[in-house]
Structures are given as C-alpha cells and as structure tokens.
Design a protein around this nucleic acid. Structure first.
Lengths: 347, 347
DNA sequence: CTGTTAGCGCATTCAC
DNA sequence: GTGAATGCGCTAACAG
C-alpha cells in the first residue's frame, strides 16, 4: 500500500460531456455543438462552455462520437515496409494531409505479404475508418471482396499499371513505364550489354514490373539483358554491393547494370568505387527512386525519381474529397503522378 | 443515373452482430462470446457462428466494442519526423510488437514542434488508447498535466537523461553519455582539435544533448572544441557536406569533426572524398546512429549505434505489460538500452 | 438559440 | 451453455 500525497494527480476516469455541461450550466447537446462549431450559439454560452472544457482539461471521446455519428476520423494506412525510406515518405505525405483535415492515420505494415495485408486491412476496417489507403494494387481476391462489400473509400498508391480492376482510386505511377524509360535512356547513351541486380522480387511486385518494362524495352531496341542477379532478402546497400560483385564475377563483359532501386544501386556504386571500376566508363549504373543519398554521391546516380511525398498527399486528398453523393457515378479514377528520369553521372 | 448490374457489389452498410446472430440462429451475446473466445461454448454453436460470420464477411465494430468495454485496442505513437529512417525503424518496432498483441498504432508526427506535439497527443487521447508512446522526454507543461490527469499509460522513447521527472516509463539511451563516449574515443585515438557540424539543434533536443556531452568530455580530457558549424534546417547528407565545407573554410587546423548524426557525417565523408581529404589521416569524422549506409561506405564510418528497432519493441512491450493492479506502486521505470560505439575507419 | 429524446453496436451484468 | 436487459459517451433528430 502506498500513501498518496494530496497533490498527487489522481488517475481519474476521463471526463464526460456531462461534467463539462454541469460546470458550464448548459445541456450536453450545447456543449457538443460548441465543441464542434455546429449551429448557432450565443457568444456568452460559447465562451462559458469553452472555459469549462479548458479548465477541466476535457478530451472528447471520439469512440462514442464516431459510433453515434457513424463516421470516424480515422484513416487506415497500409504500407509494405518501414525499413525503406520510400514508404516513410509516403506515410509522411498521408499523415500531414490528414492532420490538416483533423483526421488521424492508423497504420499497418504488411512486410510485402498479401495474406498479412488481408488480415491487417480487415482489422483496420473494424474501426470503421473514413477510408483505407494502401500501397500497391495487387491484393488477395478475398480482400477485394471484403473492400467492395464494405463500401469503404479505398485508395491504392504507388502503382497504376495492373490487370486487376481498380478498387476505387489509384494514385501512383507506371513502374513498367519507369523501367522502360530507363532502358531507353541507357541504350541512347550507347550501352548494349545489360545486367540486372535485384532483391527478392517475388514479393516486391513493383520492382518486378520495372524489370519487365526494362527488359521489354531493351529487346525492342535491340539490346540484350545478359544476366540477372537476385539477392535473397530485402533491398539494401549491402545487398546491392554483393549482388554486383556476384554478377560481375560471372559476366565480365557488361556495359551497364540496372538495379531494383537506389539502395541497391548505391551498393553497386560503392563496389565500383572500391574496386577501381570507373562509372560510367567501365560500367554504367542506374537505380530507381531518386533518393537524396544517390544525388549526394561524388558522382550523381542515374535514376528515376518517384514523387513519394506527393503520392501520399494526393492519396489522403482522395479520401477527403470523395463525394458520397457522387459515389455511385464515379468510375474508379486513376491519378498518374508520373516520374522524372534523372540523368546522373553514373550512366 | 447509372444502371447497376445485379451482381455489382452493393456498398451496403457494414454488418452488425445481430445479422450474424440471425443467420446462425443464436443470440447476439453468443456471437459476441464466440468471436472473442470467452466463456464456455458448445462446439456445435461455435462452428455455426464462425461459419455465419465467415460467410457474411462480418467485421466487428471496434468502436462500439471499445466503448462498451471501456478499453480500445489502439495505441498512440508520436514521433518527431518520418524523413529520418531512425524514427521509421522505431515505428516498425512498435507496430510489429503491437500487431502480435492484436493492437494497432495511431500515429502522429510533430515535426520537432512541442506545441504541435501537445495538440497531437490531445487528439490521440480522444480515442481512449491503451497507451501513448512518444519520442523524447521534453514536453510542454500542459501536456504533462494532461497526461498525468488522464491516467493513460505513457512511454517516452529514445532519451532517458532529462531534468524533468518521467511521466510513466522510459525506454532509450543517454545521449549525453553517447556524446561523451565518442569524445573519449576520439581523444584516445590522438585527436585534439575538434570541430562540430550540426543541423537545427534548437529543435532536435537529443542532438543537443549529444553535443553537450561531447563538449564536456573533451574539456575534461584537455581537448578543444574549436568551432561549431550549424546548418539551418533538418539534417541531411547535403547539409553535412555543406556544413563541413563551411567549417573547414574557416578553420584549417582541425583534427576531427563530430557530426550531429550519420546523415550529416556521410555528407562530410563525401566532401572529404571529393576534395582529396584523407580520413582519418587528414581529418577524422564521426557520427551518431549507426545507419547501414555509414557501414557500407568504402571506409566504415565511426559512429555510435542506437538500438532503434529494439527501443520500439520495448516501448510497445511496456504498454502491453503495464499491470493495472500494480499501477499505484510502480515507480516510473527507466529502461536503458545502451549504445554501441562503432570504431570505424574514418576516425 | 437551447434542451429532450433516442439510439449508434457492442460487452456486460444478470437470469434461465 | 445461452438469452435478455442495461448502458458505454456521444450525436442527431426533434421540439420549443
């Protein structure tokens, strides 16, 4: 047993609307209206209510509020990973835009696992969110059904080229086109014999789409993708370094190497630097994402910049502006944010 | 007006417990119990209920559940930034541990702004979360009062050395000690004349604590902190590069430079590389965080590794294990996860 | 402009 | 083992 000093803060149950109402001498509804800026309120009572709420340190119970009004201020946000700065930036875009509108993000991380994504989204739906924002357009059939049946606003981010029909809205870019654009650029720079270094591409579907677009464009332009080196596990600088080493050990005659993303490409860069391989003279190197680190290297990395922060903001925006009235008429809409090829100094 | 095909999914209102009950031919209470694995249930009815819920694609309404049971499965998570991979990793640790326990994270990003932190936490509290996990131990007095009065479980992460009393639990490391450890290491390596390159340190309180610990230890060991170069804005590779350039322009006689973190230090590294400054012969360089990128540079960066993922996990753990029963007796507890000095090749 | 009356969907007493 | 009430804290019609 402890002896509690009189001034010690009592971990009391949170206050209710009723207690604010009592202190202000008005009804609960009035307090509710004042706090939500709804309807006409006499200035005197508004002041009194605000004062009472402030003095008591009242924090409204949004659980109750959402239940009563059938509409929570929560938005589910699902990303495949947080190791990757890319998704952290998307998340920042989403949360910032949501905050402006007074909404909050509940997050889920799938680890690139579609079954887990299904479970996570299902759990998110339990909060009756205003909407769900998820990375990627590839989902389990069961998740598609769940989302469709639920009538929840859904925004798919990052990727816009897929065979499956859109759930609701899409904000992103064509990874196939990004891969093709890089292939075109590299071929134009005179490179002909290509290699590829990637990470576990069976899970990272967008990386696969880039590779497919890249390979197809190479073929179209008469260049060759000589070899692909896939490193197990997630992408990282270390994996890129090791991957390039392995690739070059087996194939000494490559002009250029395309990496699954900038992390991997930076690893390749370091391998070249450490082994006296000059870029792009001895070997050209290219990545994807347009990360800051790549542009701060002594030789700027050739890559494609994806507008991640903007994608996050636009995705949140879609949730905010979804007109319930127009819901039935609205065809699933796609916003293509495009990408920018950065012709750096490594290719 | 659109003509809706018969098979088109009707964006119906989400199902209620009652509909599952009707289909299974039992009462709502029974469904509720089956779904939550509570109390004795006949195997036959359990199967029937599960089948009905599955077939209907029922997703429980946690808003209602939390309201009725006064306890939500939400945990507020507040970080200063998401640009920095460091906090993304912390967030990953938190969400992974929470997911194991069936809880979900609602996030808030403060932008290193304490007033905004206060608003965000206040908004988070509105969901009556199981607990709040926040980065840092420096908060507005008003936020401290709010949290104390509320009786919410609070875990402060990252930092453990502060004048203010802990709110509830702390999981982190002493940034002052980390700065001092680096000072000791560098002096032991023979360096005497030091410079510092930092970012906007008025907002990044932990960076300031590291600098203070660093400077104090230098003084104690008879070395000198010749100059500090503060770059406006957040930390970045570019800022570190520019900062070192500026510092060296004004002070040509430095032995070693301590950076506010690894991002900045990597920038310094690139500056040296681009300008033929050899590390550590001409200039020693050290950072803080132990990011992967620093350890993949051709010369491994000398730095201090902070166990960010682990901090996140432990912080979530604290929320989970907080015994309501022992709540009154429990003194605010601090978990020091420590840090590891990485003696790289740049110092 | 303000108060009163009903639920929101579920978890929880209790009975049976 | 199961079902029938009661209320969580708030918003949303209604009156007045």
């Amino acid at each position: 047993m402890t002896i509690r000093h009189e001034t010690a803060p009592m971990p009391a149950a949170p206050l209710r609307l009723a207690e604010v109402a009592a202190r202000a001498g008005v009804s609960e509804s009035t307090v509710s209206r004042v706090l939500r800026n709804i309807g006409p309120i006499a200035e005197a009572t508004r002041v009194a209510v605000l004062k009472a709420a402030e003095e008591l340190g009242y924090v409204p119970n949004r659980l109750a509020g959402a239940l009563a009004s059938t509409g929570s201020a929560l938005v589910g946000v699902v990303v495949p990973s947080l190791d990757n700065i890319v998704f952290a930036e998307v998340l920042r875009g989403v949360t910032e835009r949501l905050e402006e509108a007074g909404l909050q993000a509940v997050i889920g991380v799938t680890g690139y696992d579609l079954a887990r994504e299904e479970r996570i989204v299902s759990a998110l739906l339990a909060w009756r969110p205003r909407g769900i924002v998820m990375a990627g357009i590839d989902h389990t059939p069961r998740l598609r059904d769940l989302l469709a049946a639920n009538g929840t606003a859904v925004v798919e981010m990052m990727d816009i080229d897929g065979a499956e029909p859109a759930l609701d809205r899409r904000v992103g870019l064509s990874h196939g086109a990004a891969g093709a654009a890089m292939a075109a650029h590299l071929v134009a720079r005179g490179h002909r014999r290509f290699g590829y270094v990637g990470h576990d591409i069976s899970r990272d579907i967008r990386a696969r789409k880039r590779l497919d677009g890249f390979a197809a464009e190479l073929a179209r332009r008469g260049a060759v993708l000589v070899a692909e080196e896939m490193v197990a596990g997630p992408s990282s600088v270390a994996a890129g370094r090791a991957g390039l080493a392995a690739l070059l050990a087996a194939h000494r005659d490559l002009d250029a190497v395309y990496f699954s993303n900038d992390d991997m490409a930076v690893g390749g860069y370091f391998h070249c630097e450490a082994n006296g391989i000059r870029m792009p003279g001895d070997l050209a190197i290219a990545g994807f994402n347009g990360l800051d680190i790549g542009q701060e290297l002594p030789r700027r990395l050739t890559t494609v910049r994806s507008p991640r922060y903007r994608i996050g903001q636009l995705a949140a925006e879609q949730i905010l502006t979804r007109q319930e009235a127009a819901e039935d008429m609205a065809k699933p809409a796609t916003i293509d944010v495009g990408f920018e090829l950065i012709a750096g100094e490594t290719a």
